[in-house]
């Protein structure tokens, strides 16, 4: 674990010193704006507006941070040749990727954590309280961000930041819209073989819609941040899914990166 932790703490330091924390200021401003203006025009739905917009911003910022900081995660190391000083030491390439991924995750989590504290503070200030739903929704965001970071690590291990960014954004869109895409396929194709094939192909993509359970969850129960939300069991299940999926992605990244010539 020594090399992984050393690399993770270095990546974390890089992200923090890259002024990523400035995004907190923007978020704080947005939260305050939401609190002061949107709730005023929400016709007694101030709690709902604050929670929905706050969690929505948290999710959006989390994905933006993950994609923008993750795209150049490996590319920059190779382009600036700093990787020469790392991989010539007794550290495996899989360990290198794991360290980079964990460091980036820690830095994005720090920013999201501070944003969440602001959101809770604003909720308490406005007298709406901070119910468990908020914490559950925030945890789901962290899990989704973890998966997205693993995907940027995968693409970053063999392509440029632009391609990594585009591919990751594409996967986020597909992952969020998977149920709709499945429905379209079922409607479009009548042949069972085609349906099976399309269904299997879609299973390769991360089920990111699991982390934004708005409206109906899988038991047909209505979920909302201001009413009933997902259970803790659901949270545990999605955490496991995120860990396993990200682990598989990391292994694929390691296989691709293992024999790459660093010229």
């Amino acid at each position: 674990m020594g090399p992984i932790l050393a690399l993770a703490s270095n990546t974390y330091r890089e992200a923090i010193r890259n002024k990523v924390l400035y995004s907190i200021g923007i978020f704080a401003l947005l939260v305050i704006l939401v609190g002061n203006f949107l709730t005023d025009i929400s016709l007694h739905n101030d709690k709902r507006v604050l929670f929905d917009v706050g969690i929505g911003l948290l999710s959006t910022f989390g994905l933006i941070l993950a994609v923008f900081t993750g795209t150049s995660l490996i590319y920059k190391e190779i382009d600036r040749k700093t990787i020469y000083l790392i991989l010539t030491k007794p550290v495996g390439r899989a360990q290198f990727l794991a360290g980079k991924m964990l460091g980036l995750t820690a830095s994005v989590y720090l920013v999201l954590g501070l944003m969440f504290v602001l959101l809770v503070g604003q909720s308490l200030f406005m007298g709406t309280g901070a119910p468990p739903q908020l914490y559950k929704a925030a945890l789901l965001i962290l899990f989704e961000v973890f998966i997205v970071i693993s995907i940027t690590t995968l693409f970053s291990s063999f392509s440029t930041p632009f391609i990594t960014g585009m591919l990751t954004l594409g996967i986020i869109v597909i992952g969020r819209l998977l149920p709709d895409l499945k429905q379209i396929i079922l409607t479009k194709y009548q042949a069972d073989a085609m349906r099976d094939l399309a269904d299997r192909l879609l299973q390769v993509f991360p089920q990111l819609y699991l982390f934004v359970p708005n409206g109906h969850d899988f038991n047909g129960q209505y979920v909302s941040l201001t009413a009933e939300f997902v259970t803790w069991g659901y949270i545990g299940w999605t955490a496991l899914y995120a860990l396993v999926y990200s682990g598989i992605i990391l292994m694929i990244s390691a296989v691709i990166f293992r024999r790459r010539d660093l010229t």
């Binding site: 703490s9 330091r13 890089e14 020469y84 550290v91």
Partner: peptide, 19 residues
């Protein structure tokens, strides 16, 4: 040799030692 701009030499050596 290229280094991480944001690190001091001491921080870099700590990381190298950590590896």
């Amino acid at each position: 040799p290229w280094f991480y701009d944001y690190l001091t030499a001491r921080e870099f050596l700590r990381m190298a030692g950590g590896i």
